[in-house]
């Protein structure tokens, strides 16, 4: 299935966007988790704090649906 992953910052460099400045179109097996998809893309999950889809926080065991736009939130320090 097709999925759109988005991110900025250093994570953007790893994601290698191809749709627009922040977005990469990927084709993945249906039912895969974000964690599994990151593995397929070769992105260490340590660079992703959590996912954000449909306006909500999602853990990395979230399974996106067809054509879903998923933002990957990089970790930062502080607060």
């Amino acid at each position: 299935m097709v999925l759109y992953l988005r991110s900025g910052g250093k994570l953007r460099d790893k994601l290698q966007p191809d749709v627009d400045h922040y977005t990469r179109r990927v084709e993945v097996e249906s039912g895969q988790t974000i964690r599994e998809i990151l593995g397929v893309l070769g992105i260490d999950e340590g660079f992703v704090a959590f996912a954000f889809a449909e306006g909500k926080f999602r853990r990395l065991d979230y399974r996106p649906h067809e054509e879903e736009v998923v933002t990957l939130q990089p970790p930062v320090s502080g607060g």
Partner: peptide
């Protein structure tokens, strides 16, 4: 319109607790 803005606005820094534990 930056993709990481909305998560920041909604959740702030407390959402890194899970990540930190898993690391």
């Amino acid at each position: 319109t930056h993709p990481n803005m909305a998560p920041w606005q909604k959740y702030g820094t407390a959402f890194f607790v899970g990540w930190s534990n898993e690391r």
